[in-house]
Design a protein around this nucleic acid. Structure first.
Lengths: 242, 242
DNA sequence: CGACTTTTTGAGTCTAGTCAAAACATGTGG
DNA sequence: CCACATGTTTTGACTAGACTCAAAAAGTCG
């Protein structure tokens, strides 16, 4: 595949990506190099499936380049979009650790370059480096905390508040400062935002138009800028701009 | 406090509860005994607060006797009920591992006897026993998987399906076989069920009356029997009994 | 410039929430 | 043991927020 710059998955780049993982970054360069040897890289075109929910969890993955969607089929044509991972983030089911198959679908959201390590090799690393296990535990715990936060929002917030929260979450994760505001520039359709908030594209569009009228955001086809983060934050936290 | 049978937190009972934890049960009796020395027990009357969301996470807890509610304040008088733990279950923030404070409120749901270990001591155990760390990772991963499942349900299921799912979840966790069905016998108000499903007591009542009419369940003040688990399961999975 | 996709807008409907009252339990003290 | 006070559950009527379906508008790309 020639759409990925070959430099992207160069040894150097791989070492950098792997060495920056929160649970590896304390390791020495040569240990990182050993670990690197256990990773294989492959490309995935936008829309390509990496694995399905329920498949036996054979690999642990690492996004080297591009964006990966984690989602769940929810029946009746509905999909819940759990997260969109970028560059340097990892996936492939920590659920492995719980013993069962993958707990979500993973799909390349853009053209991607992905690193992968077998569950067995990863287990071996954990067994040899207790400190790594300890740090993996931290990151999984953090994900659990985030997931619970989303549970709370979905069970008690209005669509408006949920959309405000998602925009803020995306901004803090993927945003670039732009004057007073924050720009989120990504292939995010209204459809995607709907699947992240448990809503519909039409409702997302309406709510975002309202936000735009109130000067909270500006938005276009595949981008959003949060013009007034403070106000939006108040809306997300209290359900009113007051 | 005299409402708890003193035998309950006897040394013997403590050792049994601690020794049955998924991440300790492989340890030898004398290691368990050492660990036991690090736990302190205390009683909590129904309704008593164990900790608040955001408090600095100083302890890891273990339910010896009784039931503990984990919930989050969601603003505007709403509460999200994350889980009700029983006998042998643990809480007190794995979020510790992520570094921050408790991520939810913990309240005694019935009169309880609770064991507690300081975060520092628990960390010491993890440092000394890598195999324990590994197993804790498993259990946290499993919780993450469950939490994600709930996210999916909240974002894409109707109230009816959510209530069906919660009843089944409670049944598999707390139910006792009763003829063809399963009896859930607990101080669960409609209010609680509403807080677990992101709904309201009135709606829960209406939906459950409908379930009862259709012969799926029978229910009374503080109990529910699932008369027809298969049908209820179909409803939860596909959104229709058909 | 067209063909296509995504977004917006509009109208109508329905699910689930709100508010209020009645029915039902449960526990207490006379 | 009954009457009453309290709390929970059910029912009813009404409302509103969000969904559905449909069409128009606005970008995007070859």
């Amino acid at each position: 595949m020639d759409w990925v710059d070959p430099a992207v998955c160069s040894l150097d780049y791989r070492l950098r990506i792997i060495g920056r993982l929160p649970f590896f970054k304390h390791l020495s360069a040569d240990v990182i190099a050993q670990i690197n040897d256990l990773f294989y890289d492959f490309d995935a075109a936008a829309g390509e499936r990496i694995y399905f929910e329920g498949d036996e969890a054979e690999y642990f993955y690492l996004v080297a380049m591009g964006k990966v969607r984690l989602s769940c089929e929810a029946g009746q044509g509905r999909e819940a979009l759990l997260d969109i991972l970028r560059n340097g983030e990892y996936f492939g089911s920590f659920a492995t650790f719980g013993g069962r198959g993958y707990t979500e679908d993973a799909v390349a959201h853009t053209d991607c370059c992905i690193l992968r390590i077998s569950t067995a090799d990863f287990e071996r690393i954990l067994a040899e480096h207790p400190d790594v296990t300890r740090k993996v535990l931290d990151t999984v715990s953090q994900r659990l905390a985030k997931s619970q936060e989303i549970v709370v929002q979905l069970s008690a917030f209005s669509v408006e508040r949920r959309i405000a929260s998602v925009l803020l979450r995306l901004a803090s994760k993927l945003g670039e400062a732009r004057g007073a505001g924050v720009l989120i520039q990504l292939p995010f359709s209204r459809q995607d935002l709907a699947a992240m908030t448990g809503s519909t594209p039409e409702t997302v569009s309406r709510v975002m138009s309202r936000f735009a009228e109130e000067g909270l955001i500006e938005s276009g086809r595949k981008w959003v800028t949060i013009a007034n983060p403070e106000k939006l934050e108040r809306l997300a936290d209290q359900g009113a701009v007051n």
